[in-house]
Amino acid sequence: MDTLRALSEGVLPPAGNRIALSTAESNAVQSLFPDRVLSWTNSGTSALALALLAIRRDAPEVDQPEVIIPAYCCPDLVSAALYAGYTPVFSDLAKDRCHYDQEALKRALSERTLAVIAINFLGVAEPIKSLRVALNRPSVAIIEDNAQWFPSKPQVQTTAADYQTFSFGRGKPVNLLGGGLLVSSNDPPRQPGTAKGSALQRGLYYGKCMAYNTLLHPTMYQALARNPWLRLGETRYHEHTSIEAFPAGQAHLVRANIQTYWSHERRAEKSYRKHLAAINLLAPQIEASEERLLRYPLLLESRETRNALLHKLNERGLGATTLYSDTIDRVNDVPQQRLRQAGDNANAASFAQRFLTLPVHEGVKAHHIERTLTVIDCVVG
Protein backbone atom coordinates (compact mmCIF):
# COMPACT_ATOMS: atom_id res chain seq x y z
CA MET A 1 0.00 0.00 0.00
CA ASP A 2 2.80 2.42 0.92
CA THR A 3 4.56 1.62 -2.36
CA LEU A 4 1.42 2.29 -4.41
CA ARG A 5 0.82 5.55 -2.54
CA ALA A 6 4.41 6.67 -3.13
CA LEU A 7 4.09 5.96 -6.86
CA SER A 8 0.78 7.82 -7.13
CA GLU A 9 2.14 10.88 -5.34
CA GLY A 10 5.43 10.88 -7.26
CA VAL A 11 8.71 12.51 -6.23
CA LEU A 12 9.28 16.18 -5.46
CA PRO A 13 12.25 17.71 -7.28
CA PRO A 14 14.76 19.05 -4.72
CA ALA A 15 14.79 22.46 -6.45
CA GLY A 16 13.38 24.11 -9.52
CA ASN A 17 10.61 26.52 -10.42
CA ARG A 18 8.85 26.54 -13.76
CA ILE A 19 10.36 28.74 -16.45
CA ALA A 20 8.18 31.68 -17.47
CA LEU A 21 8.18 31.96 -21.26
CA SER A 22 7.04 35.60 -21.46
CA THR A 23 9.49 37.78 -23.36
CA ALA A 24 10.41 41.40 -22.68
CA GLU A 25 13.32 43.75 -23.05
CA SER A 26 14.50 44.79 -19.62
CA ASN A 27 17.02 46.61 -17.49
CA ALA A 28 15.68 44.77 -14.45
CA VAL A 29 19.12 43.43 -13.51
CA GLN A 30 20.99 46.67 -14.17
CA SER A 31 18.56 48.48 -11.83
CA LEU A 32 19.65 46.12 -9.04
CA PHE A 33 23.32 46.99 -9.61
CA PRO A 34 23.48 50.63 -10.80
CA ASP A 35 26.92 51.91 -11.76
CA ARG A 36 28.26 48.34 -11.95
CA VAL A 37 29.48 46.47 -15.01
CA LEU A 38 27.36 43.45 -15.95
CA SER A 39 29.07 40.67 -17.91
CA TRP A 40 26.68 37.99 -19.18
CA THR A 41 28.16 34.53 -19.74
CA ASN A 42 27.08 31.03 -20.68
CA SER A 43 27.19 29.76 -17.06
CA GLY A 44 27.83 30.69 -13.46
CA THR A 45 31.12 28.80 -13.71
CA SER A 46 32.17 31.04 -16.59
CA ALA A 47 31.21 34.14 -14.58
CA LEU A 48 33.39 32.94 -11.71
CA ALA A 49 36.29 32.14 -14.03
CA LEU A 50 35.95 35.60 -15.58
CA ALA A 51 36.21 37.23 -12.14
CA LEU A 52 39.35 35.22 -11.38
CA LEU A 53 40.88 36.22 -14.72
CA ALA A 54 40.20 39.89 -13.93
CA ILE A 55 41.92 39.55 -10.56
CA ARG A 56 44.89 37.81 -12.13
CA ARG A 57 45.14 40.52 -14.79
CA ASP A 58 45.57 43.11 -12.04
CA ALA A 59 48.37 41.15 -10.32
CA PRO A 60 50.66 39.98 -13.14
CA GLU A 61 53.62 39.81 -10.78
CA VAL A 62 52.16 36.82 -8.88
CA ASP A 63 53.30 33.53 -10.33
CA GLN A 64 51.15 30.44 -9.73
CA PRO A 65 48.29 32.34 -8.03
CA GLU A 66 46.04 30.72 -5.42
CA VAL A 67 42.36 31.13 -4.59
CA ILE A 68 40.80 29.94 -1.34
CA ILE A 69 37.55 27.98 -1.46
CA PRO A 70 35.49 26.26 1.27
CA ALA A 71 36.27 22.61 1.93
CA TYR A 72 32.57 21.86 1.43
CA CYS A 73 31.50 23.38 -1.89
CA CYS A 74 30.39 22.77 -5.45
CA PRO A 75 33.18 21.31 -7.64
CA ASP A 76 32.46 24.03 -10.20
CA LEU A 77 34.56 26.33 -7.99
CA VAL A 78 37.52 24.06 -8.67
CA SER A 79 36.91 23.92 -12.41
CA ALA A 80 36.58 27.72 -12.64
CA ALA A 81 39.80 28.20 -10.66
CA LEU A 82 41.79 25.73 -12.75
CA TYR A 83 40.49 27.25 -15.99
CA ALA A 84 41.69 30.69 -14.82
CA GLY A 85 45.14 29.31 -13.93
CA TYR A 86 44.84 29.20 -10.13
CA THR A 87 45.61 26.58 -7.53
CA PRO A 88 42.43 26.06 -5.46
CA VAL A 89 43.22 25.97 -1.72
CA PHE A 90 40.42 24.53 0.37
CA SER A 91 39.86 25.75 3.91
CA ASP A 92 37.68 24.38 6.72
CA LEU A 93 34.22 25.54 7.76
CA ALA A 94 33.43 26.86 11.22
CA LYS A 95 31.97 24.24 13.55
CA ASP A 96 28.26 23.67 12.82
CA ARG A 97 28.27 26.53 10.31
CA CYS A 98 28.03 26.73 6.52
CA HIS A 99 30.75 29.38 6.20
CA TYR A 100 34.50 29.67 6.76
CA ASP A 101 36.30 29.12 10.02
CA GLN A 102 38.01 32.51 9.92
CA GLU A 103 41.08 31.35 11.86
CA ALA A 104 41.55 28.46 9.44
CA LEU A 105 41.05 30.88 6.57
CA LYS A 106 43.83 33.15 7.81
CA ARG A 107 46.16 30.16 8.05
CA ALA A 108 45.34 29.29 4.44
CA LEU A 109 46.69 32.60 3.15
CA SER A 110 50.00 32.64 1.34
CA GLU A 111 52.02 35.15 -0.68
CA ARG A 112 50.34 33.73 -3.76
CA THR A 113 46.74 34.21 -2.55
CA LEU A 114 44.91 36.57 -4.88
CA ALA A 115 41.29 35.80 -4.02
CA VAL A 116 38.84 34.20 -1.61
CA ILE A 117 35.50 32.84 -2.83
CA ALA A 118 32.71 33.46 -0.31
CA ILE A 119 29.60 31.34 -0.84
CA ASN A 120 26.08 32.57 -0.37
CA PHE A 121 24.94 29.15 0.85
CA LEU A 122 21.36 28.51 -0.33
CA GLY A 123 20.46 32.09 0.62
CA VAL A 124 22.54 32.30 3.81
CA ALA A 125 25.22 34.88 2.96
CA GLU A 126 28.81 34.78 4.17
CA PRO A 127 29.49 37.91 6.31
CA ILE A 128 31.75 39.67 3.82
CA LYS A 129 32.69 42.62 6.04
CA SER A 130 33.73 40.29 8.86
CA LEU A 131 35.64 38.17 6.37
CA ARG A 132 37.54 41.18 5.07
CA VAL A 133 38.55 42.22 8.60
CA ALA A 134 39.73 38.68 9.36
CA LEU A 135 41.80 38.53 6.17
CA ASN A 136 43.42 41.92 6.80
CA ARG A 137 44.90 41.73 3.30
CA PRO A 138 43.57 44.55 1.05
CA SER A 139 45.35 42.96 -1.90
CA VAL A 140 43.20 39.79 -1.62
CA ALA A 141 39.97 40.13 -3.60
CA ILE A 142 36.69 38.66 -2.34
CA ILE A 143 34.32 37.06 -4.82
CA GLU A 144 30.77 36.59 -3.58
CA ASP A 145 29.46 33.46 -5.30
CA ASN A 146 25.67 33.77 -5.53
CA ALA A 147 24.96 30.72 -7.65
CA GLN A 148 22.43 29.63 -4.99
CA TRP A 149 20.84 33.04 -4.42
CA PHE A 150 19.31 35.99 -6.22
CA PRO A 151 18.01 39.25 -4.70
CA SER A 152 14.51 38.64 -3.37
CA LYS A 153 13.31 42.24 -3.81
CA PRO A 154 13.54 44.86 -6.58
CA GLN A 155 15.88 47.14 -4.71
CA VAL A 156 19.46 48.34 -5.17
CA GLN A 157 21.98 45.78 -3.93
CA THR A 158 25.10 46.60 -1.97
CA THR A 159 28.03 44.36 -1.09
CA ALA A 160 31.46 44.57 0.51
CA ALA A 161 32.74 42.02 -2.02
CA ASP A 162 34.87 43.00 -5.01
CA TYR A 163 32.98 40.76 -7.43
CA GLN A 164 29.61 39.02 -7.45
CA THR A 165 28.62 36.07 -9.61
CA PHE A 166 25.20 34.60 -10.36
CA SER A 167 23.90 31.52 -12.15
CA PHE A 168 20.73 31.00 -14.18
CA GLY A 169 21.19 27.26 -14.58
CA ARG A 170 18.76 24.44 -13.88
CA GLY A 171 17.39 24.53 -10.36
CA LYS A 172 18.80 27.99 -9.59
CA PRO A 173 16.69 30.81 -8.10
CA VAL A 174 16.09 32.43 -11.50
CA ASN A 175 16.07 29.42 -13.77
CA LEU A 176 16.76 29.75 -17.51
CA LEU A 177 18.45 26.34 -17.92
CA GLY A 178 21.76 28.12 -18.34
CA GLY A 179 23.63 31.39 -18.25
CA GLY A 180 25.66 33.36 -15.75
CA LEU A 181 26.40 36.91 -14.68
CA LEU A 182 29.46 38.69 -13.31
CA VAL A 183 28.90 41.99 -11.48
CA SER A 184 32.06 44.06 -11.14
CA SER A 185 33.30 47.63 -10.80
CA ASN A 186 35.23 47.62 -14.08
CA ASP A 187 35.41 45.73 -17.33
CA PRO A 188 36.75 42.15 -17.12
CA PRO A 189 39.51 40.92 -19.47
CA ARG A 190 36.87 39.90 -22.00
CA GLN A 191 33.20 40.74 -22.49
CA PRO A 192 31.34 37.70 -23.88
CA GLY A 193 28.21 39.70 -24.80
CA THR A 194 25.02 37.95 -25.95
CA ALA A 195 24.92 35.23 -28.58
CA LYS A 196 22.70 35.79 -31.61
CA GLY A 197 20.77 32.62 -32.22
CA SER A 198 18.65 31.56 -35.18
CA ALA A 199 14.88 31.15 -35.06
CA LEU A 200 15.44 27.38 -35.02
CA GLN A 201 17.77 27.60 -32.00
CA ARG A 202 15.26 29.73 -30.13
CA GLY A 203 12.47 27.33 -30.97
CA LEU A 204 14.51 24.38 -29.72
CA TYR A 205 15.30 26.25 -26.53
CA TYR A 206 11.65 27.07 -25.87
CA GLY A 207 10.77 23.41 -26.45
CA LYS A 208 13.43 22.43 -23.93
CA CYS A 209 11.92 24.83 -21.39
CA MET A 210 8.44 23.38 -21.89
CA ALA A 211 9.78 19.86 -21.45
CA TYR A 212 11.56 20.94 -18.27
CA ASN A 213 8.37 22.49 -16.89
CA THR A 214 6.50 19.25 -17.53
CA LEU A 215 9.15 17.12 -15.82
CA LEU A 216 8.92 19.22 -12.64
CA HIS A 217 5.57 17.62 -11.80
CA PRO A 218 6.16 14.93 -9.13
CA THR A 219 4.45 12.17 -11.14
CA MET A 220 6.75 12.91 -14.07
CA TYR A 221 9.90 13.63 -12.08
CA GLN A 222 9.77 10.24 -10.37
CA ALA A 223 10.61 8.56 -13.67
CA LEU A 224 13.97 10.30 -13.46
CA ALA A 225 14.49 10.17 -9.70
CA ARG A 226 13.72 6.46 -9.34
CA ASN A 227 15.94 5.43 -12.25
CA PRO A 228 19.26 4.22 -10.72
CA TRP A 229 21.06 4.42 -14.07
CA LEU A 230 20.65 8.20 -14.28
CA ARG A 231 22.41 8.89 -10.95
CA LEU A 232 20.31 12.04 -10.74
CA GLY A 233 21.72 14.72 -8.45
CA GLU A 234 25.12 13.04 -8.06
CA THR A 235 27.92 15.54 -7.44
CA ARG A 236 30.70 15.19 -9.99
CA TYR A 237 33.56 17.31 -11.27
CA HIS A 238 33.44 18.62 -14.84
CA GLU A 239 36.36 20.41 -16.46
CA HIS A 240 35.53 23.94 -17.60
CA THR A 241 36.65 24.49 -21.17
CA SER A 242 35.49 27.93 -22.34
CA ILE A 243 33.86 31.25 -21.48
CA GLU A 244 31.12 32.00 -23.95
CA ALA A 245 28.29 34.46 -24.50
CA PHE A 246 24.95 34.36 -22.70
CA PRO A 247 22.90 31.67 -24.51
CA ALA A 248 20.81 32.76 -27.48
CA GLY A 249 17.12 33.34 -26.87
CA GLN A 250 17.38 33.59 -23.10
CA ALA A 251 18.00 37.31 -22.66
CA HIS A 252 14.36 38.07 -23.46
CA LEU A 253 13.21 35.77 -20.64
CA VAL A 254 15.31 37.31 -17.86
CA ARG A 255 12.84 39.99 -16.79
CA ALA A 256 9.79 37.70 -16.67
CA ASN A 257 11.61 35.04 -14.67
CA ILE A 258 13.00 37.52 -12.16
CA GLN A 259 9.51 38.91 -11.60
CA THR A 260 8.08 35.41 -11.31
CA TYR A 261 10.75 34.54 -8.74
CA TRP A 262 9.86 37.62 -6.71
CA SER A 263 6.18 36.66 -6.76
CA HIS A 264 6.58 33.11 -5.45
CA GLU A 265 5.10 32.40 -2.04
CA ARG A 266 7.48 31.27 0.69
CA ARG A 267 5.06 28.97 2.47
CA ALA A 268 7.32 25.93 2.78
CA GLU A 269 10.35 27.97 3.78
CA LYS A 270 8.46 29.89 6.47
CA SER A 271 6.95 26.71 7.87
CA TYR A 272 10.34 25.00 8.14
CA ARG A 273 11.96 28.09 9.66
CA LYS A 274 9.29 28.03 12.37
CA HIS A 275 8.93 24.32 13.08
CA LEU A 276 12.51 23.07 12.65
CA ALA A 277 14.50 25.78 14.44
CA ALA A 278 14.79 23.67 17.62
CA ILE A 279 16.56 20.79 15.85
CA ASN A 280 18.47 22.70 13.17
CA LEU A 281 22.01 23.66 14.15
CA LEU A 282 22.01 26.20 11.30
CA ALA A 283 18.91 27.98 12.62
CA PRO A 284 20.86 30.95 14.08
CA GLN A 285 22.47 31.63 10.70
CA ILE A 286 19.20 31.20 8.84
CA GLU A 287 17.21 33.43 11.17
CA ALA A 288 19.81 36.19 10.99
CA SER A 289 18.65 36.85 7.43
CA GLU A 290 15.25 37.38 5.85
CA GLU A 291 16.54 36.49 2.40
CA ARG A 292 14.71 33.86 0.38
CA LEU A 293 16.20 30.36 0.55
CA LEU A 294 16.80 28.18 -2.52
CA ARG A 295 16.40 25.07 -0.35
CA TYR A 296 15.91 24.76 3.38
CA PRO A 297 19.29 23.75 4.90
CA LEU A 298 19.03 21.35 7.85
CA LEU A 299 22.06 20.40 9.96
CA LEU A 300 21.44 17.62 12.49
CA GLU A 301 23.29 16.35 15.56
CA SER A 302 24.51 13.08 14.07
CA ARG A 303 25.14 11.27 10.81
CA GLU A 304 22.89 8.42 11.93
CA THR A 305 19.93 10.76 12.40
CA ARG A 306 20.61 12.47 9.06
CA ASN A 307 20.79 9.15 7.21
CA ALA A 308 17.61 7.81 8.84
CA LEU A 309 15.73 11.00 8.04
CA LEU A 310 17.02 11.14 4.47
CA HIS A 311 15.90 7.54 3.90
CA LYS A 312 12.40 8.11 5.29
CA LEU A 313 11.85 11.37 3.42
CA ASN A 314 12.97 9.96 0.09
CA GLU A 315 11.02 6.76 0.63
CA ARG A 316 7.99 9.06 0.54
CA GLY A 317 9.25 11.08 -2.42
CA LEU A 318 9.71 14.33 -0.48
CA GLY A 319 12.80 15.61 -2.31
CA ALA A 320 15.45 15.63 0.44
CA THR A 321 19.09 15.70 -0.68
CA THR A 322 22.57 15.78 0.84
CA LEU A 323 23.61 18.49 -1.66
CA TYR A 324 27.34 17.75 -2.28
CA SER A 325 27.47 14.68 -0.01
CA ASP A 326 31.16 15.11 0.89
CA THR A 327 34.08 17.50 1.14
CA ILE A 328 35.64 18.77 -2.07
CA ASP A 329 38.67 16.47 -1.81
CA ARG A 330 36.35 13.44 -1.95
CA VAL A 331 34.11 14.46 -4.87
CA ASN A 332 34.27 12.18 -7.90
CA ASP A 333 36.85 13.12 -10.55
CA VAL A 334 38.18 16.25 -8.79
CA PRO A 335 41.91 16.39 -9.74
CA GLN A 336 43.30 16.21 -6.20
CA GLN A 337 46.90 16.68 -7.33
CA ARG A 338 46.01 20.20 -8.49
CA LEU A 339 44.48 21.30 -5.16
CA ARG A 340 46.13 22.35 -1.93
CA GLN A 341 44.66 21.57 1.48
CA ALA A 342 45.13 24.20 4.18
CA GLY A 343 45.11 22.35 7.49
CA ASP A 344 42.47 19.75 8.28
CA ASN A 345 38.85 19.93 7.19
CA ALA A 346 37.28 18.14 10.16
CA ASN A 347 34.42 20.60 10.55
CA ALA A 348 33.53 20.46 6.86
CA ALA A 349 33.65 16.65 6.88
CA SER A 350 31.36 16.53 9.92
CA PHE A 351 29.02 19.06 8.26
CA ALA A 352 28.76 16.94 5.11
CA GLN A 353 27.82 13.86 7.15
CA ARG A 354 25.02 15.59 9.06
CA PHE A 355 23.53 17.90 6.43
CA LEU A 356 20.48 17.65 4.19
CA THR A 357 18.18 20.00 2.29
CA LEU A 358 14.41 20.20 1.94
CA PRO A 359 12.69 21.60 -1.16
CA VAL A 360 10.89 24.94 -0.80
CA HIS A 361 10.09 25.73 -4.46
CA GLU A 362 6.66 26.57 -5.91
CA GLY A 363 5.80 22.89 -6.39
CA VAL A 364 5.87 22.19 -2.64
CA LYS A 365 2.24 22.13 -1.50
CA ALA A 366 0.66 22.13 1.95
CA HIS A 367 0.36 18.34 2.02
CA HIS A 368 4.08 17.97 1.20
CA ILE A 369 4.96 20.26 4.11
CA GLU A 370 2.70 18.37 6.49
CA ARG A 371 4.10 14.99 5.46
CA THR A 372 7.69 16.26 5.71
CA LEU A 373 7.19 17.61 9.23
CA THR A 374 5.46 14.38 10.29
CA VAL A 375 8.42 12.32 9.08
CA ILE A 376 10.89 14.59 10.85
CA ASP A 377 8.91 14.43 14.10
CA CYS A 378 8.91 10.62 13.94
CA VAL A 379 12.64 10.31 13.20
CA VAL A 380 14.12 13.18 15.21
CA GLY A 381 11.48 13.44 17.93
Rank of each mutant, 00 (worst) to 15 (best):
R112H: 10
Y163F: 15
S31Q: 15
G381N: 14
Q341A: 14
L122I: 10
E304A: 14
D187L: 11
R306M: 11
K129V: 12
P75M: 06
K274Y: 00
Y100E: 01
Q285S: 15
G381W: 07
E61K: 13
L276D: 02
R340M: 13
W262F: 10
Q259M: 09
A308G: 03
R36T: 05
I69T: 11
G193N: 01
R267E: 06
K106A: 15
L299K: 07
T241N: 13
E239Y: 00
S263C: 00
N280Q: 04
L224K: 06
H368E: 00
A268Y: 00
L135R: 09
Y212D: 08
L12G: 11
D329A: 13
N347R: 11
D333L: 11
L293H: 04
V364K: 00
A80W: 02
G381I: 10
D63W: 01
P247G: 07
N27D: 15
L253P: 11
A348M: 07
R340N: 09
V174D: 05
L21Y: 03
T214M: 07
L52T: 09
A223Y: 05
C73I: 09
L7Y: 12
M210L: 15
S350D: 15
K196L: 09
T113G: 13
S39Y: 00
P60C: 05
P60R: 12
D187R: 11
E111L: 09
F351G: 11
A308D: 11
G197C: 02
P188R: 03
Q191C: 03
L224W: 01
P173G: 04
S271P: 00
Y261K: 08
A160H: 12
D58L: 08
S91E: 06
P173V: 01
D145C: 13
L318H: 01
E362K: 12
S79C: 06
R340K: 15
E269C: 02
L4F: 04
V379Y: 08
P218R: 05
K95H: 09
R137P: 00
H217M: 01
S8W: 09
V11F: 14
F150R: 13
D377E: 15
P138C: 03
T23F: 00
R56N: 01
C209T: 12
Q336C: 13
L53A: 12
V11G: 05
Q337I: 09
A49G: 04
T113Q: 10
I119H: 03
G363A: 12
A118I: 10
P359S: 14
S39R: 02
E290D: 15
L356F: 08
L276P: 07
Y212N: 04
M220I: 04
